[in-house]
Write a protein that binds this DNA or RNA. Structure first.
Lengths: 117, 117, 117, 117
DNA sequence: GTGGTCTAGACCACT
DNA sequence: GTGGTCTAGACCACA
């Protein structure tokens, strides 16, 4: 039972989590993802909310519904996701982050690098 | 007349803009900031919306009201703002950004540095 | 439909009323409070006004929002509220009251005690 | 140069201060009170604000203007002020204070009595 | 001139 | 159903 961020809608946070798992290979292509009911039960959230999150990824062509079976990661989902997200990061997010670092009077070199783990 | 982002409420974007201006010294300590009505007129937004944005910074101790006169940047506001925002960035934002970069399979060295142009 | 005091803003009076109810246990911890629309309807005031009042208590950590569900009294809200208000009373309000009594040439013993009626 | 309370208008705080001084005899009946200009200069506030505060007490019959000379404390001002303020305190303020003490779970006996000075 | 409050009503997003 | 945001416009108090 995750604790959800305050501002971002739960269904979006959920979609991002699944997206990360796909990009990291934790959810492999062709494999089923946890069912709506299962997630809703574990996370104590409304099944409709889970469903909405999954639907986002279906719309992006990363998940596919197989009727009566559940939802599966599409073939090629990992590369597609990585390409799309890298593009979004470089064009939308990174420029703003760079500006923010500058305004704060920081520099990239000062920032903690994170463990090599 | 700025064009506002879609998702973030206008009053928050406004507060962030003023905050940036304080951190960059464009709004100097002890100086008055543009009046609610003035901003509302220029930006074509409701005075109430401006007021809400300003109030956020008053609550954080960066702006002070002088009754009947307007709102002024507090003494020490710049340092206070910089310290607070740096702290927030390093503890909350940067770790997530670092994770995102890692998940995307990117590395800091690859990222565009932003010319001095 | 309460009749509101003249000088104090309605949203503040509302927040104080809810605060009292929390301190007296009339609104129990973990329980939902009346919805913005419900109060607005009963009291014949604007939903925005109710919302502002509630927001004050959210900011103080006494109420929490559950998205799409409504607002609830936080765990531990009662003790937190009592401690904070007692402190404020003893340090800010009572000294002034004591001074006022003294200036008026009254003494505590003379003051009506309030029957248990 | 006093530091003024945030919420109460300055001219009211000023009037209350003068009122206290009259009730305590610090400003004696028949004596002149500090001129508008003098107070405005000392307190760094607008003369109009001072004037407005004084006017409140004129309206209540506690001060009188003598043209070309300034303002003076009326004869009988002290008793009149004491009677009026005692009445207001007992009927308006004290009942609310008593309620607040009760809600906070305090009792009169517990409250600090202040020095016997 | 300044900011504060309130209303009435609309639209949006989340559950 | 819930709360959040924004608008347009009014009125008030303060300096």
């Amino acid at each position: 039972m995750t604790d959800w961020g305050e501002n971002e809608p739960i269904y979006i946070q959920l979609a991002q989590r699944v997206l990360s798992q796909i990009m990291q290979g934790a959810l492999a292509e062709g494999e089923p993802i946890p069912s709506v009911r299962q997630v809703a039960g574990q996370e104590r959230i409304n099944p409709l909310t889970v469903s909405r999150g999954y639907q986002l990824l279906v719309d992006e062509g990363l998940l596919e519904k197989r009727r009566g079976l559940g939802m599966y990661v599409c073939d090629g989902a990992r590369d597609k996701a990585l390409a799309r997200e890298r593009d979004r990061f470089l064009n939308n997010e990174w420029p703003r982050i760079r500006d923010r670092i500058k305004v704060l009077g920081l520099s990239l070199d000062q920032l903690p690098q994170g463990r090599s783990s």
